[in-house]
């Protein structure tokens, strides 16, 4: 598969996911809605990273460097949420 075709396919997948996330937002999914929205956003980001940012042809080090920010953000969000989600338990 030529590089250009691969990029075009990735773009098409991204557009499909955008349509999907927009459609899902209007479905009665209740509390699962934000989870689905962020799961699709993560999938889109993964496509951008993998194809557009060429992580597919990079070696381990570059992938690690790219991933580090996301992993560290997960630490920030998880431990901050530990506080916000359990504050109500105190009273």
């Amino acid at each position: 598969m030529s590089g250009t075709v691969r990029l075009l396919l990735a773009w098409a997948a991204l557009m499909a996911l955008l349509a999907l996330t927009l459609g899902a937002a209007f479905l009665p999914l209740g509390p699962a809605k934000p989870w689905i929205a962020f799961a699709i956003a993560t999938a889109k980001a993964a496509l951008v990273l993998w194809f557009f940012m060429e992580m597919r042809s990079e070696r381990g080090l570059a992938r690690l460097a790219m991933l580090a920010g996301f992993v560290w953000l997960a630490i920030l969000f998880a431990l901050t949420a530990t506080d916000y989600l359990t504050r109500a338990w105190m009273t």
Binding site: P34, L61, A62, A65, M66, A68, G69, F70, W72, L73, L76, F77, T80, A81, Y84, L85
Partner: peptide, 26 residues
């Protein structure tokens, strides 16, 4: 590699905004 590391720091910069949104939403 330098560019990728710089981008990691950019991700952390926006992380503050997302953390604020998360706190507000919760």
């Amino acid at each position: 590699l330098g560019m990728l590391i710089f981008l990691a720091s950019e991700i952390m910069l926006f992380g503050g905004i997302f953390a604020a949104a998360l706190a507000l939403r919760l």
